[in-house]
Write a protein that binds this DNA or RNA. Sequence first.
DNA 1: GACAAAAATGAACTATATTCATATTTCGTG
DNA 2: CACGAAATATGAATATAGTTCATTTTTGTC
Lengths: 201, 201
Amino acid sequence: MEEKMGRRERKKMQSRKAILDAAVEQFSQKGFKETSVADIMNAADLGIGTFYNYFQSKEEILVQLIQQMVTEVAEALRELKAANRPADELLEAGCRITACFLDKNRYVLPLFISAAEHSGLPEGSDKQPKVASPGFKGLYERILREGQERGEIRQDVPPELIAEMFHSIYQAAALSKLAISFQENVEMKTRLILDGIRVRK
Amino acid sequence: MEEKMGRRERKKMQSRKAILDAAVEQFSQKGFKETSVADIMNAADLGIGTFYNYFQSKEEILVQLIQQMVTEVAEALRELKAANRPADELLEAGCRITACFLDKNRYVLPLFISAAEHSGLPEGSDKQPKVASPGFKGLYERILREGQERGEIRQDVPPELIAEMFHSIYQAAALSKLAISFQENVEMKTRLILDGIRVRK
DNA sequence: GACAAAAATGAACTATATTCATATTTCGTG
DNA sequence: CACGAAATATGAATATAGTTCATTTTTGTC
């Protein structure tokens, strides 16, 4: 890989990072819609026009932020999966990892939610950004499928469906107004699902 | 109740309905964000300014639309609940009613989703419209609680949590890209949860 | 130091939500 | 019926924010 990097590229990375950081800060504080591109660029101490040298639109930066976070968590999950543990254990651990990540990075919750917004666009719309979930959902799906192959998970539940369910649990927990913590919320639900899909001995 | 209504009020209702209908049509077709107030009012054959005699903002009309739909479904559920059937049966029927309603009213799905958008706003924001869910979630919660009292539902699962879970299932199904129908999607997940929370005999 | 490529910039452009002063319609009253 | 007041309708004007672009500034090379 390229380890060398001219001053130019380094500077460009710096600006990019400054914009991303400022965006996280502003989005977390005021929400996506209430944050203007001008807000972001002021916080980043850069001219407004500069924004469009790095991102195609205000929406794109949100998508990239989410993408980045999902990748980070998915990476941790993938490592765990390599250890070849039974599916239910993996899923429970996965939920713990995710919850832990979100707990440490409180600011992502509002972003996570803002992402849902874009799904409101009608099917064909070319503006529709393909948001991050495949990374997550695909991984969960594979874990479940392999669990089925090993006879740990019931055969009569479609993995895509359960994966979707796990995903929606995170989404819902992020929005939750309940008194319990994100972690508790997600763990209880996860265990419930696992009880439902585990092959009973 | 007032059954009498002057021509004036009748006309006002007419305009209101025209705007709501036009909004549903336009939102369903182009999505919330892509629909302008002008689009709505053109479709309703009314002046643009008139919109603001009926709704405070473009967001408010979305909230009212959702509110209206949720109320409609919740009403059907409430009737069913009066029949005093066991909780799991009620919940399964509830899911069927909701799925059926959404199937008949395809246009609400995009709206349903657009509603999530507003949850992205930070907590304190006075702009945050309190969206519809309480009607739904509250009802599910009560059904679950009564099921617990009758010993049909496990005591160790907080009803608020399960209610939230059901809610998120609908949300997710609306967004789902899976091949199966909304109805199938929701029914499978519902049965899974029910299996998890029913008291085993 | 001079030239070219890359990056930064903010004024100008565009689109759209919202306001508002005015016009039109409705309806009770003399 | 006529009149005035209250309700409703209206679209031009305003304000805001995303995006473009011609220009300037910075960076790297010879």
